[in-house]
Design a protein around this nucleic acid. Structure first.
Length: 142
DNA sequence: GCCAACGTTGGC
DNA sequence: GCCAACGTTGGC
């Protein structure tokens, strides 16, 4: 299983909005960046991802899972843009802030730090485990 | 609200 | 295929 991180401005689409969709999940649409799209093309059902609030909050607030593999983005007719569907799995008991991520040497290579503007990004297994630990979650239980 | 970083577009 | 102009993202 692979791990990812999805960024969203809570003004546009928040963790609460995501939770409200329940098990059906929702398209992760609106991505207009090739790198981010290519990562979505690699995603498989059951892959896990962090849900990050950008602009407002600046923290990882929850965990989602991919529930539909890549398909055309319904918000555009442009055939270049695809998306996956994700659904909420659980909130983080303690949100992990960008500040904490930056302050943790183990997370120095995380894309969240190194590729600030990339809105869909891969997370390495050890980074996943470290963030879960900081959030008060046992990664084996999720 | 500002501005740095960086991706995209389009003229040549 | 280069590169300047431009637009967008996102932290501060």
């Amino acid at each position: 299983m692979a791990y990812w991180l999805f960024k969203s401005e809570p003004n546009a689409w928040s963790w609460e909005d995501q939770v409200a969709r329940g098990a059906a999940g929702e398209e992760w649409d609106g991505i207009r960046n090739y790198q981010a799209r290519n990562f979505m093309r690699e995603m498989k059902i059951g892959d896990r991802g962090f849900f990050y609030h950008s602009n407002v909050g600046l923290e990882i607030v929850g965990i989602v899972e991919v529930c539909q593999t890549v398909h055309p983005d319904s918000t555009t007719d442009d055939a270049r843009w695809d998306c996956v569907d994700v659904r909420a799995v659980c909130p983080l008991p303690v949100p992990v802030t960008l500040k904490q991520v930056k302050a943790n040497p183990k997370l120095a290579d995380m894309s969240l730090v190194t590729s600030m503007r990339l809105s869909v990004q891969p997370v390495k297994p050890d980074e996943w485990a470290e963030v879960c630990k900081m959030a008060g979650l046992d990664p084996r239980t999720i």
